[in-house]
Amino acid sequence: MTVPPRLAVLLAAVLLLGGLSAWAVVHAAARAESRGLPRAGEPAAGPGAVTLATGQGRRMLFRTMAWGPHRDEVVSVPADDPGGPRVSSGVRCLRFHASSGTGACLQAEHGPLGDTYRAVVLDARLRERRAFPLAGIPTRTRVSPSGRMAAWTVFVSGDSYAGTNFSTRTSILDTRTWSLQDNLETYRVLKDGRPYHAADVNLWGVTFADDGHFWVTLATGGRTWLARGDVAARTLTTVRQNVECPSLSPDGTRIAFKKRVPGLPEDAPWRLYVLDLRTMRETPVAERRSVDDQAVWLDARTLGYALPGDFGADIWTAPADGSGAPRRLLSAALAPVVVE
């Protein structure tokens, strides 16, 4: 079929305008990103007072991933209105956690010779109390329920848990005495009830039971274990295989974790599970996508976790008992914690 000349001209003009419009949208987004301006659809944040103090109402704090002047800052929203306006603290963190008025903030410092990293202990008003240099790229951090102890994990080499070619370092700090256990790999390991020594032991993802005890991932020989740690005795005792990034429930009876499931892609091998510590029964969470995160208990029944999103990462939730369905709670967000 021959297209009439006038129609051909019209079609060409429409295609040209459509192409120009698409280019303009992409170019405008790129310019906004380069200037640090919010892009369409991103939640905005404004400066204000952000606190870890209790008695200020139930709030959710997290790292905002939205482009703009407050990107990577810790922001606050009412817990019952997570999509509401974000109040920004001015404190930038790659990873963040808090409990009982103490915050742990893992930061990047940009210099002429490249980035360096540090762990910063924050008070209830998010002011720096003390900082410690980090040996690698920050990936996990937790504060004990009392606020006294803090832990963090960094990648010394590699930048992903999916493969085996990486090395981590995990540290625990007592914020009362400022005593730092810089490398938990110096702990004595009891694996399957026997002393165990291996050069390839890796540890990551501390979750505190109290100021003297914690749970952590122990990896060796290409496998992972849930290990129970004792700060005073400096021991690690393996409890269960194929557990990564544990997160202890508020009542101390369950652990949320990511589990490698056979048959899944090598770069997305995990599913989210909950382990009952009394019965050792595992329950799969309704989330069917691969979760490469250390889940957070937003309350006694609900897990929060990060998944890739349009602006970096989004926070999703799912019931811990395996019921229901996942739902997106926060867009352009990472590392949530609930403060009451």
Results as ranks from 00 to 15, higher is better:
L218C: 11
T224W: 00
P47I: 01
F208K: 15
L10G: 06
V9D: 13
V216P: 05
T141N: 07
H27E: 14
A8P: 13
G111W: 05
A104Y: 04
A29I: 05
A24V: 15
V338W: 02
R39M: 11
P133V: 10
P4D: 13
V291D: 01
C245I: 11
G309T: 11
Q241M: 10
R118Q: 04
E185R: 15
E73F: 03
T164A: 13
I315N: 08
R118F: 00
R240A: 10
F132N: 07
H70W: 03
L180F: 13
T116D: 02
A108I: 00
A268L: 08
V274I: 06
A227D: 01
G41V: 07
T153E: 05
A150R: 02
D267S: 06
A53S: 15
T141F: 03
L37T: 03
E42T: 08
K191M: 14
L15D: 08
D210A: 15
P195C: 14
T54E: 13
G114A: 03
A66S: 10
V26S: 15
S179V: 12
R327V: 13
L20C: 14
F155E: 09
F96C: 04
A295L: 00
W270M: 00
S34R: 12
A333V: 06
A40P: 02
D230S: 08
A162Q: 09
L16Y: 13
L61I: 05
A44N: 09
N183E: 15
V87E: 04
L303I: 06
H197L: 09
D200G: 10
L16P: 09
S249R: 08
L264S: 08
V231R: 05
R130C: 03
L203T: 10
P262G: 11
F132A: 04
F96K: 04
R6A: 15
T54P: 13
S167D: 14
T237L: 02
V156S: 05
D251S: 10
G229K: 01
T317Y: 12
G263R: 03
T64R: 00
V87K: 08
H70I: 00
D321L: 15
V291M: 01
A45V: 02
A28V: 13
E42P: 06
M280R: 06
G48S: 11
E185I: 13
S89T: 11
S331M: 11
P78S: 12
G103W: 00
Y196A: 15
L15Q: 12
S146F: 04
T207W: 09
G212S: 15
Q294D: 07
P112Q: 03
G19H: 14
F311L: 07
A12P: 10
E128S: 04
T235H: 04
V87S: 07
L61V: 06
A79M: 12
V239A: 12
A333L: 08
R31P: 11
P47H: 08
V231W: 00
A13L: 13
T238K: 10
V154I: 11
L106C: 06
A325E: 10
V274D: 06
E287N: 07
A131T: 10
A124K: 03
T220W: 01
L180A: 09
